[in-house]
Amino acid sequence: MSKRAISTEQIHHPYRDPEGWDAHPVGVFKASTVLFKNTADLHQYRPRDGKSYRYGLHGTPTSYTLAARIATLESAEHCLLVPSGLAAVTLVSLGLLRPGDEVLVPDNVYGQNRYLSESLLPQFGIQYRFYDPLDAAGFEAMLSEKTKLVWLEAAGSITLEFPDLLGLMAACKKHGVITALDNTWGSGVAFNPFEIAPGVGVDVSMQALTKYASGGADVLMGSVCTRDLALHERLNHMHEHLGYGLGQNDVELVLRALPTLELRYRAQDASTRALAEWMLSRPEVAQVLHPALPDSPGHAYWQQTSSAGAACLFSVIFKPEYSSVQVDAFVDALSLFGIGYSWAGPMSLAVPYDMGRSRSLPSRLAPGRVVRFAIGLEAADDLQADLAQALAALAG
């Protein structure tokens, strides 16, 4: 046989890796095309069950491994991976809602979930209403035959009110309404979303794996977990239609970070509590928002459900005499805090917010400008010194 062209030789090279290789890191398998043994194998039905392969978009051994480990982290049976936390939110809402349905969303929900409810869902004939997550009785009165999905978020975005999860879920169970929890803050460490109390848990738990699961501030990814096979299949159907896929190098980075997730969570939690308590003593501050602080809204509900963890976020409301210009100057004066969105990475972050733009219902917050802090892995003493020097900028 004559020698083949170099391109043909390289594409059809006969070498295959031998049996017997094993290592702790998971191999990175990247492919669009999945090869079949023959046409009979090609025509064989392959369910989306994490055990068989059809096309790279639907999964490789690398992404199947990550899905299985996230399911274990969340105490779930099934897990779907998506390209971002927002993609996970979108998958749940579009997968479980139909024209004529209604979704109830907490007033302190993640901003992109709020925007999805206000702008996209109505285009599909889906109604939405916002509810107070600390008022389970008022929430139950809102439930109707049209209510098919309730979003929960613990703790609430930016202002970190901790919801009455047990009361809200009891009302949903009584009325047969599906519950979906944004569990990015808890990350599988603070509490078990499917057994928050004996016999009480959510139906769907999603995370932005961008945050704690990644930990490096260099990956965008999300997950949607369930225990119920019928719910999983509904979500899986929408997942396939949306064409969600992942880069396997990103999957590798999350797999590498998972073993240190709890260590990072505990370390950032401890630093965050120390800094939140210190800011509480400052004369410039009207209110500190952190679920572990007794005066923070929803503290008693946090104690009921997740006192084992409190993540890396806290927010400060400066007294009303400080203008937005002064508060921005404070943020600009910080040297160890980056100015940017997201959290749970190694670098601490600070972002000022105007909460009037993202709330519909009466607030339990003190008046004043809000700054949210995401505490990284720097030494807490260094961060405290940085906060102290930046507070001098308020006077200017």
Rank of each mutant, 00 (worst) to 15 (best):
Q207M: 14
L313H: 15
A197T: 09
A213M: 05
F318N: 12
G176M: 01
G222W: 01
D22K: 08
G368A: 03
E195N: 12
L258M: 02
P83D: 04
L258V: 01
T210H: 08
W151A: 13
Q10W: 15
L42R: 14
T260Q: 10
S324N: 05
A390F: 09
A310F: 05
P259W: 02
A329N: 02
Q268W: 09
L80M: 15
G188K: 03
A88V: 10
S342W: 14
L80G: 11
H12P: 01
F337R: 11
A40E: 14
A374I: 04
A87R: 06
L168D: 02
A385H: 12
S187C: 14
T147R: 07
V202Y: 12
L263W: 01
G345Y: 11
R98V: 08
A374D: 12
T8P: 03
P346E: 03
L242A: 07
P99T: 07
P291K: 00
A137K: 10
G215K: 08
P283A: 00
L261D: 00
V316G: 07
P106D: 07
V316Y: 09
R69I: 00
N108K: 05
P18R: 09
A40C: 04
D332N: 14
S7V: 15
K146S: 11
G27P: 13
A180H: 08
L242C: 03
V251C: 03
E195P: 09
